[in-house]
Design a protein around this nucleic acid. Structure first.
Lengths: 140, 140
DNA sequence: CTACTATTGATAATGTTTTTCAATTATAGG
DNA sequence: CCTATAATTGAAAAACATTATCAATAGTAG
């Protein structure tokens, strides 16, 4: 069985990268987390699998994974350090206020809104960023 | 003429705060900026009006203004340190990729999208955050 | 004008992220 | 399997950003 971890590591390898214990541990933690994690949280969790892991390697691995668009930084009121597996294509983020669980959903059509804004402001719209929060089924 | 700076300082005063040169300088800079500014940018600009201003006072003033909801932190790819005058009610942000100019626009009706997401995910939707970027009329 | 107390600026402390560098180790090719 | 090469590692130090401490200053109410 090819896990998502394997898939990510394969992608790393195919872009001139090497598959190391440090990276395997970091990737494993992120892949199996239902919620965004900060570098230190990743470090703490990954250290259980790879005892000698250094925090610096976590930062470096995150940088690489972000370049490969396998993970994304998550911006929240309480901070913008956490990372989550990235969505495919143009997906948006839904976060539970209680447990932090993240769900990615496909973007709806916001074209009519954008054309109105474009008209009103004279801007040429290039990109947008939508994030929704609430309470998940388990936390209700 | 009552400027927006005066209005902000008045609001400060009405919540047990004092109107000082340091705050006047910081507020002036933010109020008259068309784009989000970082603490250091605010510091540099405000120092021209108030020579003895300390960076720490900028941070403290920003904290107060954010509490009063007169300013808001702006999250961008390049960082999340910048602040901008806040919108009234539920407005969203439109940013120019070139010059950084910010425009606030009234939120459209996203209810149908939310009810669909709610149905699909079991979440109870509480809040959302929409930010749009593009190229403004002057930069096109 | 005075008393009170919020605010200030300087300094130090804290926390996060990046840089440096010698040692290690994954990988391709023999 | 062995070797050469170059990417990666972990530790320490450096660079940044933000917050706490504290005595001195200055707004404000009376």
């Amino acid at each position: 069985m090819v896990t998502r971890t394997d898939h990510w590591l394969e992608k790393l390898k195919s872009t001139d990268g090497r598959v190391t214990d440090a990276r395997r541990a970091v990737v494993d933690v992120i892949v199996s987390s239902p919620r965004p994690l900060t570098p230190v949280e990743i470090f703490d969790a990954a250290r259980k699998k790879h005892l000698h892991l250094g925090l610096v390697s976590v930062y470096r691995t995150l940088e690489k994974l972000e370049e490969l668009r396998l993970i994304q930084r998550v911006h929240q009121e309480q901070g913008c350090q956490a990372f989550l597996r990235a969505g495919v294509g143009h997906q948006h983020l839904l976060l539970c206020e209680r447990c932090g669980q993240a769900v990615l959903f496909d973007g709806d059509d916001l074209e009519s809104l954008f054309s109105r804004i474009s008209q009103q402001t004279g801007f040429e719209i290039k990109d947008h960023w939508l994030q929704v929060s609430g309470v998940c089924a388990e936390c209700k």
